[in-house]
Amino acid sequence: MKILATVKKIPGGTMVVPLLLGAFMNTFFPSILKLGGFTTAVFSSAGANTLVGISLVFIGSQLRIREAPEALKRGSVLLLAKFIAGGGFGFLVSKIFGPAGFMGLSVLAVTSCIASGNGGLYTALVTDYGDATDVAALSILNIKDGPFLTMLALGATGLAHIPFMSLVAAVGPLIVGIIMGNIDKDIKEFLQPGIAIIIPCFAFALGAGINFKNILSAGLSGIFLGFLCVLISGFVCILFDRFINRRPGYAGAATSAASGNSVATPAAVALIDKAWHPYVAAATAQVAAAVVVTAILVPFVTAFIAKKFGSEKDKPKTSDKQINGKSKPSLVKKETAQPTLTHVNN
């Protein structure tokens, strides 16, 4: 059976398929994931943070220190794009419709969803289409996973703060990987295969924290919020990635999904500002539904952008172009037969 080959035909398949399988198990057979021991530690949402952390060690080992400033730049630009998308659209909705929003979507729900980002999905997609620098940009993008950007967008800047040690803890595994990969080239080569291997593992664990029933409880408004998130966030992030970062745009598309952590954002905001409390229940269900919808849609959007504007995986390696100083005839024919590759290289 060609299971892996089939999965790889799906955009972001090694991330999306395990994630959906995890969500399926958590929705219909949650008791299996709660058996305890190694089963729960690896296959439930309890293992998600550990597995993502390990993946950051592998990813960091591939990043050259000289590439760090570029990673910070790319991440900062995409973070700003997320803030503008979520805060700007939320502000617009508030001015036109008031805090209650429109079509059952409150300003709290809209901002909590659009201003967040799915770091695990971003990691999987840019690992497939991008380079180590794209992945390292996650160290900055991690800021959007919590309620911080939402609080800023709602005017709660005086009450919101991110402890410095929390930021250090978030990027710690990445730093460890960078150090190991830079002091020993053999370690870099040893850890490189682990990036692709661990993606399905943490994807399943992330999916095990999702319940499909949340989509039903949120109704059409939650599904609509998911499409709205991809449309608004995707447009702004792709625009910033292409015209400020001067990149093809696939990283901007990859960061347009809603974060699983954003499900808790409405409640976190209401703890600080009681005025939002009446909207928390509906917003929480709607954001949870949007998380599932965006996890399905964003890989296809990213694949489309990568195909249209190019990606790192489209660039032929030197070893593919030359053997002993001579071009390989088979590859020359292949490149001629593929207009997409020719367009990207030109």
Rank of each mutant, 00 (worst) to 15 (best):
166 S>D: 15
328 K>E: 06
184 D>L: 09
139 S>M: 11
148 F>Q: 06
152 L>S: 02
153 A>V: 05
70 E>C: 08
148 F>I: 12
70 E>T: 13
51 L>T: 01
12 G>Q: 05
56 L>F: 15
332 V>D: 13
41 A>I: 10
127 T>S: 15
182 N>T: 09
238 I>Q: 05
275 A>K: 14
23 A>H: 05
31 S>M: 12
212 F>W: 08
109 A>G: 06
96 I>K: 00
9 K>T: 14
43 F>W: 11
268 A>K: 11
1 M>I: 11
60 G>K: 04
305 I>N: 02
335 E>L: 14
199 I>M: 05
31 S>T: 13
50 T>E: 06
49 N>L: 14
315 K>D: 06
233 S>K: 08
107 V>W: 00
44 S>R: 03
243 F>D: 04
296 I>V: 15
140 I>V: 14
146 G>R: 04
243 F>G: 03
220 L>E: 08
227 F>K: 14
282 A>E: 08
22 G>L: 08
44 S>H: 01
311 S>M: 02
239 L>I: 07
208 A>D: 03
169 A>Q: 13
116 S>P: 09
193 P>S: 09
274 K>D: 09
131 D>A: 07
254 A>M: 05
307 K>D: 14
188 K>V: 06
201 C>H: 04
144 K>S: 15
109 A>Q: 00
53 G>T: 07
21 L>V: 13
67 E>S: 09
137 A>V: 00
46 A>I: 08
197 I>C: 09
6 T>S: 14
63 L>G: 00
193 P>D: 08
227 F>C: 14
246 R>D: 10
113 C>M: 09
199 I>P: 02
180 M>L: 15
54 I>R: 01
266 P>N: 07
118 N>Y: 08
245 N>P: 01
189 E>L: 14
191 L>Q: 07
144 K>I: 08
344 V>L: 10
82 K>W: 00
219 G>T: 05
289 A>H: 05
41 A>N: 09
95 K>G: 00
185 K>E: 14
115 A>D: 03
107 V>L: 02
142 N>E: 13
327 S>R: 13
75 G>I: 04
189 E>C: 06
228 L>M: 13
144 K>T: 11
182 N>H: 07
18 P>C: 08
79 L>Q: 00
103 M>Y: 06
52 V>G: 00
190 F>E: 10
81 A>D: 02
62 Q>W: 03
8 K>N: 13
241 D>S: 11
84 I>D: 05
152 L>W: 10
287 V>C: 08
255 T>D: 01
19 L>Q: 03
221 S>M: 04
227 F>L: 15
305 I>G: 04
65 I>N: 01
231 L>T: 12
262 S>Q: 12
138 L>Y: 02
22 G>T: 04
215 I>N: 02
145 D>Y: 00
193 P>Y: 08
178 I>D: 00
103 M>R: 07
